[in-house]
Simulated assay, not measured.
Amino acid sequence: MINRESRRLRVLQVGMTRNLGGIETYLIEQFRHLDKSKIDYDFVNITGEYSICYEDEILASGSKIFKVVSRHKNPLLHYWQWFNILLQNKGVYDVIVLNTNSLEYVFPLVLGKIFGIPVRVIHSHNSGFENKQGLARRLLVGMNKKLLAWSANLRFACSQFAGQWMFKDNPYHVIYNAIDIHKYDADPIVREETRNALGLHTELTLLHVGRFSYQKNHSFLLDIFKGVHRIQPDSVLLLVGDTTEESEFLTEVKRKIKAYGLENVVRLLGRRDDVNKIMQAADVLVMPSFFEGLTVVGIEAQASDLPLLLSDTVTKELGLLPSTQFISLEAGPTAWAEAIVNSKQHNRQSRYEELKAAGYDIGNETERVEKLLIDAYHELV
């Protein structure tokens, strides 16, 4: 008989997609730092017609990736494939975790309860609705809240703000969006090399990292940069985010760049795997989001000692360093532009100790997550 205390926990993670964003960064950093003698992750790709981020790395490590066709493409096949995965792996998984930005999809946890997975975790990564909340969506969210109350028995959130938004008065654990802090340490040599590679010289360099979506508010970002460029013509804006498919938001960004005559100073860099180096090259990170859970990008920027300007709709929990500023969206693009021009700082340094003390060291936080999942399993089995 296997000693329950020494048994390796098998966890099924849901939420990794093909678009490199906060959830994907959170999951892969945690995956890389797991104590594989105690716990291991497999993944379900719920848009299985595409590969997920880091798929080769995950498979090379020996973990599995199950593919399910997108529910928007073929809902019946989506649910049938989910059913078969859990049927064929009944009794294999001890934990299922749904990482989500909304309550429009909770089916994996419902199915997890039906198939007897002991620990069923909902992890809130956001603090606002991406889609317009018409009657149909409100009804769906209302029904899913009831299903969630029945199916989930452990709640995580990336911040107090994200937890209160999704869970109200229900208890939850804040799981920090921890990173490999030293990977982002300020380094003047890396800065010079990366700026040279990007063809940058003395320009004031603004950076934004995020998918093209309503939440990220790119349209206002371009209004801000137009103001920056008027004050300081020697300036550029780097936009990091997936550009492989046109969307209404990416199309609007391209239209506005052309309308403002900024084609030569706004650069669409697409998806990048070297964001840590691009942050070294930048002078300020600008995020005028309508809402955020607790953005990993904001933690990465502060780890690289990069001045960060955020909308005041973002949780103040993200303000770890004095160089991080919160500005109202209602202040208008001119106020933002002036704050950006005045925010550049020199002699950036390592911020490891501050971020570690705040709970953002990936090693420490991964150990904490492991303990929470293992303890929950032992309590329930």
Score class of each variant (00 low, 15 high):
2 I>V: 13
4 R>V: 13
7 R>N: 08
8 R>L: 05
11 V>C: 11
16 M>D: 11
17 T>F: 08
21 G>Y: 04
23 I>L: 02
28 I>Y: 14
28 I>P: 07
30 Q>I: 15
33 H>E: 15
34 L>T: 13
35 D>K: 06
38 K>M: 12
39 I>R: 01
42 D>Q: 07
42 D>L: 09
43 F>D: 13
46 I>A: 04
51 S>M: 09
54 Y>T: 09
56 D>R: 09
62 G>V: 09
62 G>S: 06
63 S>W: 02
65 I>M: 02
71 R>F: 04
72 H>Q: 13
72 H>W: 12
73 K>Y: 11
85 I>Y: 06
86 L>V: 12
86 L>C: 12
87 L>R: 14
95 V>G: 12
98 L>W: 07
98 L>N: 14
105 Y>A: 02
106 V>A: 06
106 V>I: 14
119 V>Y: 00
121 V>D: 05
124 S>M: 05
126 N>Y: 01
127 S>I: 09
129 F>N: 12
130 E>Y: 09
131 N>L: 12
135 L>K: 09
136 A>S: 06
138 R>I: 05
144 N>F: 05
147 L>D: 01
148 L>N: 11
148 L>H: 10
154 L>I: 07
154 L>P: 00
156 F>A: 03
160 Q>R: 15
171 P>L: 08
171 P>S: 15
174 V>K: 10
176 Y>H: 15
185 D>Y: 14
186 A>I: 10
189 I>Y: 15
190 V>D: 13
192 E>H: 07
192 E>M: 14
193 E>R: 15
200 L>D: 11
201 H>I: 15
202 T>A: 10
205 T>D: 07
205 T>F: 04
208 H>Q: 14
211 R>S: 10
216 K>L: 11
218 H>P: 03
222 L>Q: 00
222 L>R: 01
225 F>I: 02
226 K>D: 02
232 Q>N: 10
235 S>C: 07
236 V>A: 03
238 L>M: 07
243 T>N: 06
243 T>D: 03
246 E>I: 03
250 L>N: 01
253 V>L: 01
256 K>G: 01
256 K>N: 08
260 Y>L: 14
261 G>L: 07
263 E>L: 07
264 N>V: 00
265 V>S: 15
270 G>H: 05
272 R>P: 08
273 D>H: 04
274 D>K: 02
279 M>F: 14
279 M>V: 11
283 D>Q: 09
290 F>Q: 08
290 F>A: 07
290 F>S: 08
297 V>W: 01
300 E>G: 12
309 L>V: 03
311 S>K: 03
316 K>Y: 01
317 E>R: 03
317 E>V: 05
318 L>V: 11
319 G>C: 13
330 E>A: 12
336 W>V: 10
340 I>V: 15
352 Y>N: 10
357 A>L: 15
366 T>M: 05
366 T>W: 01
371 K>H: 10
373 L>G: 06
374 I>G: 02
377 Y>Q: 03
377 Y>N: 07
377 Y>A: 09
